[in-house]
Structure formats: C-alpha cells, structure tokens
C-alpha cells in the first residue's frame, strides 16, 4: 500500500497504463501561469527596449547619457539610502527594547506595528499628505510653539518622501532585527560586563557586532524595496525629485514610449536582482520582512 503514496519519481511511463500524476505535475498549473503572465510579459517588455523605435542600444544610450535621467537615478538612490539610514537609526533601539521588554508591553507594540503594516498603503500615504501640508497639523504645531515664522515646505519634496517612506519601511526593519537580537544569548553580554566592559564598550564591541547580520540584511531589504517604490514617492514627492518607478510609469502612460520604458525597467530589475544576489551571498536564504 505504501507504494501507492506519491514518492515523486513516478513509474516509468508505459503507453499501456495511464500515467500517474507525479509531484512535479502538481506544480505545472502554477508554472504555466507564471511563465505566461510573468516571465513572458517581462521578457517582451525588456525586448522592446532594444527593438523600439529602432533596433539597437539607442534607448540605453539616451537613458544613461542624459543628465535628466541620471538625476532621477541619483535621486532614487539618495531617497532609498536616506530612508534606509533613518529606519535603521530608529529601528535598532526599538527592536532592542522589544527584545528585552516585558511581554505584555511588547505585545502592544507588536500589535501597533502590525496594524501600521496592514493598513492600506494609500490610507497611510494620505495621512501624511494631510499632516505635512502647509496648513497641516505639523506646521501649525511648529508655528504655535514659535519655532518657525512661516510654514515649512514639508510635502512634495525630499522631506515628504523620506518621512512617508520611513513610516512604511520601519516595521520591515524592526521585525527582522527583533528576531536577531532576541536570539543573542544574554550571557555573552553578562560576560562582557564581568570582564570589565562598560555599557558603551558592550554596545559597540559586543551587541552591535552580534546584531550586524540582521541590521545589514534588514537594511538591504528596505533599500531594495525603496528603490522600486511608486505610490508614496508619486504622492509625497515633488516633480524635481522623481524616482525611477515613476519614470517608468511616465514613459509608458504619458509618453507611450515603450522602448525607453523597457530600458528603465531593465535598469531597475538589474539593480534589484544584483542587490538580492548580494543578500543571498552574504546572508544566506534569510527571508526578511513581511507581506
């Protein structure tokens, strides 16, 4: 009877008997879906970058040779880098606190992290559009406290994008970092203290190095996610600091220039995949982040 359970190898095919479904066959519907509606369309788009309007690498020459587009690339990296840095600076102490807090307090913080993560992206971005506008609460508070005389431009610029994106990315850095710090044996820190290390020395020479793999993996994850972000930069950013994803959308939607759109998409894909390769190479197959 056991031979009837699927062993995966399947019996050698013989025309006389009906071939039994193997385990590989079970993956075929999903594989078909992915090839037809994921691999093929992406390949077709990338092909158009070297065939339209004329065959050749003209689109790439234009994309990488124009200061307008290079500024967009630079801006994409600056925004992503800034968001990653701020998320890391805030995320590390929070993850650390979460790892050692009493359980009840920690579960409240976790619930708020999850609520923020699960709340509709547009709803969260809308909240920041309202909060940061010229007549918004933040400007009013700063004016009321006498810190500023005229409202600060907080939205449609780098500040707006950075605040809005950090808001979205924070949970993605706090959760994996929490996991890493949680796994560190407190006895190691105790040993450091016994050997005469003060708190700064313990932090800089023991805790931070031990948490480093988690920090690097989380930071890379947030950086890569930020590179391809579309909605939040489009709503909170200004025209002068467009990001790559917006450029791709603009090529396709407003300019109907599939060649350039495909070329820009390839640049984004290559950078993303290269960074994922780094992640796999240095941090194993560690999957980070949530949905």
């Amino acid at each position: 009877m056991v031979s009837q359970t699927e062993t995966g190898s399947g019996r050698p095919y013989s025309p006389a008997q009906v071939r039994r479904l193997t385990d590989f066959d079970l993956t075929l519907p999903a594989l078909g879906l992915l090839i037809l509606f994921f691999v093929l369309p992406v390949a077709m788009l990338l092909t158009r970058s070297v065939t339209e309007p004329v065959p050749g690498l003209g689109n790439y020459a234009e994309l990488l040779g124009s200061s307008t587009y290079l500024r967009i690339f630079a801006n994409t990296f600056i925004v992503s880098g800034l968001v990653t840095l701020v998320s890391l600076l805030i995320g590390f102490p929070v993850a650390w606190a979460l790892a050692i807090m009493p359980n009840r307090a920690a579960s409240i913080v976790f619930a708020i992290l999850l609520l923020s993560m699960w709340t509709n992206l547009l709803a969260r971005t809308y909240a920041w559009m309202v909060l940061l506008q010229r007549t918004g609460v933040i400007n009013k508070m700063l004016l009321g406290m006498g810190l500023i005389d005229t409202p600060l431009p907080l939205v449609n610029n780098l500040t707006g994008v950075t605040i809005g994106m950090t808001y979205i990315m924070l949970p993605f850095i706090i959760l994996p970092l929490y996991g890493v710090i949680r796994k560190i044996d407190p006895a190691i820190l105790q040993a450091a203290a016994l050997c005469g290390a003060n708190r700064w020395q313990s932090l800089v020479r023991v805790l931070l190095p031990l948490a480093m793999p988690g920090m690097a993996a989380g930071a890379l994850m947030v950086f890569v996610m930020s590179l391809g972000y579309f909605v939040t930069p489009a709503l909170l950013g200004g025209t002068s600091n467009m990001m790559l994803a917006e450029l791709i959308a603009q090529f396709v939607q407003s300019l109907v220039n599939w060649g350039m759109g495909g070329a820009a998409a390839l640049v984004l894909l290559v950078v993303t995949l290269a960074l994922y390769a780094v992640q796999l190479r240095f941090f194993g197959t560690n999957r980070m982040g949530g949905r």
Partner: peptide
C-alpha cells in the same frame, strides 16, 4: 513576483 518591483510587472502586464 514577491520580490521584484511591482511597477515592472505592472508595465509588462499592461503591454501584454
């Protein structure tokens, strides 16, 4: 599909 930038898939499927 989970890790690639969604905008690339969006544009590719749109064209297709």
């Amino acid at each position: 599909p989970m890790i690639l930038p969604v905008v690339v898939l969006a544009v590719a499927l749109y064209a297709f």
